[in-house]
Amino acid sequence: MTRPEARQHQLRGAVLRANPLVLLAAGLLVVPGSFAVRSLPIGLVALGAYLLAGVVLLPSLRPALGRLGVVMLASVMVVYSTWLLGGHEVDTALTAGVRVLVLALPGAVLAVYVDPSRLADELGQRLGLPARFVVATSAALQRFDQLGQTWQHLDRARRARGFGPSRNPVRTFGYAASLTFALLVSALRGATQMSIAMDARGFADAHRRTWAEPVVWTVEDSALLCLGIALAALPVILYAL
């Protein structure tokens, strides 16, 4: 006998526990699925299904709402441009907007729950991608925070020297280019040091390497994957009907 709140708790944790491959698959499957959104009703049903799944399965709606805002912006731009360039048809334009929501929203929200290190383990062990590439990419991703901080320091150093972004697009472009250049120098220097450290730990010849942690696939993962496939297939089926 399972108490309802306990079951709900278990449901809400599912996305947190989920195999990152499942999350990635769910976010990617919807891309071809969204091509079948050819009318407003199909789009609304597909979007509604995803929203429902989100409300039931997500541990918290706050990050989802943040990302919904960004996707809405893209959607509005598509609605406007389709109305303007697609013969001023409101229905077509709204359909295009909903299609973009269906296309982008699931992935944007699920990205919050993908652990890059776990994903690397899965890509290397379950999908059998070349180990050195997967491991080096995972190692490079550890540099993200550091590079983000470097970006801030570069910005600070430029402002201290009398330069900063402004409303002038040309000047702002130059400013962005200067920051980007310096960021890349810093990243490349880091990459050289990192390769030295990795080679000193035997990475150069690690064509056959082992993995310290196993990957696991649970029944829950299978269930979530089926749900992902079903949700992505929904607009296709509706369109075929």
């Binding site: 990635l24 976010g27 990617l28 919807v30 891309v31 943040g66 990302r67 960004v70 996707v71 912006l73 893209a74 296309l103 982008a104 929203l105 699931p106 992935g107 944007a108 929200v109 699920l110 990205a111 919050v112």
Partner: peptide, 8 residues
């Protein structure tokens, strides 16, 4: 990081 295009 969460952009407007999701995993697409």
């Amino acid at each position: 990081l969460g952009n407007q295009w999701g995993f697409s």
